[in-house]
Design a binder for these strands. Structure first.
Length: 327
DNA sequence: AAATATGACAACCGCGATTTC
DNA sequence: CGAAATCGCGGTTGTCATATT
């Protein structure tokens, strides 16, 4: 028996999400929390498959996502981690909590891979590539480096280490002990001109008077971001500044439209207006098994978790050494 | 100025793993 | 327990914007 069709069903919409759909999804999740995707389409009336809803949420609508404008630090980290782990984007993303795996993957494919290819070409001229667009990008020029071939010996150990890191991080988030490692999502200036995709935030703003009103109270108003999007400076490097961040808007939406009985208010017993971290930490756990409502005994766990800080340092220094080959 | 190529990124697809019934 | 449904991941494509010819 073949796999049952997922999204080929009739009446299931595909393609870019509309602002209306976004609103529907966000408000539903605001009430019920992320997860349980199978029930989302039926409960919301969205003509989307659950998969599409989950994807839209995790890669775009979820608060705490930092979009575009990869810092040099992040870039190096991605390069290092890719060299260590290969194309395990989810694992890599676990080290960059504000980035989605999809974003990292895109960034790798569009920027870093070429960059590294160039660098490699400069150093040693190997004869094979000239990959046409979208052709050599599958297994062929995988990871543009020797990651799969030369790092085979100690690699499983490192993968293990990464997996341990991921587990620790998950636990860390679950226990809300990670305030130091997870920075507040900074809101980047929105300078990209409106695209069909990216304009959704503005459109949503028009559709949501409440949201607009509440935004005007905050220093970072959406109208501000709209102005900047319209007047994109040519000085700005091509995609350094990215689309208006819908998560920015949704952060406001979520935080300003808080009701007393919605999903998030159950989690944020601190002042939600001063920081997005409560929601952020909640959202980052979205897919993880429901965290224990009661706190486990912590002394041991805390120690273990805090040990991870140094472990992370080790990893980075190690990977820095290794990736010197690239430069 | 129009046509074409390239860049960027949101979204889709297929598949293995996991969960649900 | 086993089949079906769902989740999550990684590869890939579609589409719009921008650059180049």
């Amino acid at each position: 028996m073949g796999r049952p069709p997922c999204c080929d069903k009739i009446g299931v919409k595909k393609g870019p999400w509309t602002p209306e759909e976004d609103i529907t999804l966000v408000s539903y999740i605001q009430q019920n929390g992320p997860g349980n995707w199978r029930s989302v389409p039926t409960n919301t009336g969205l003509l989307r498959c659950s998969k599409s809803c989950r994807l839209r949420w995790t890669n775009y609508l979820r608060p705490g996502i930092k979009r575009g404008n990869f810092t040099e630090q992040e870039e190096k980290m991605i390069i290092h981690l890719q060299a260590l782990l290969g194309n395990r984007w989810a694992a890599i993303a676990s080290y960059l909590p504000q980035r989605t795996d999809n974003d990292i993957k895109n960034y790798w494919n569009t920027h870093l891979k070429k960059k590294l290819d160039r660098l490699q070409d400069n150093s040693d001229q190997d004869n094979h590539h000239h990959h046409h667009r979208r052709q050599g990008n599958s297994k062929g020029c995988q990871s543009s480096s020797s990651s799969e071939t030369t790092i085979s010996k100690g690699q499983w150990e490192r993968r293990l280490q990464t997996d341990i890191h991921m587990a620790k991080q998950a636990l860390c988030e679950a226990l809300s002990l990670d305030n130091k490692t997870i920075n507040l999502p900074e809101i980047p200036p929105s300078n990209r001109s409106t695209t069909a995709y990216a304009s959704s935030a503005e459109n949503i703003a028009r559709l949501l008077p409440n949201w607009m009103d509440s935004c005007k109270k905050s220093p970072q108003t959406s109208s501000e971001s709209m102005e900047t999007t319209q007047t994109r400076s040519p000085l700005i490097n091509n995609k350094q500044f990215q689309s208006p961040d819908p998560s920015e808007g949704y952060n406001n939406l979520i935080h300003n439209n808080q009701t007393n009985n919605n999903y998030y208010s159950n989690y944020s017993n601190s002042d939600v207006s001063q920081s997005v971290s409560p929601a952020t930490s909640v959202f980052q756990d979205e897919s993880k098994p429901k965290v224990e409502d009661q706190m486990p005994p912590l002394s041991f766990l805390e120690k273990w978790l805090f040990d991870d800080v140094s472990a992370q340092g080790d990893l980075m220094s190690m990977s820095l050494e290794e990736s010197d080959n690239f430069f």
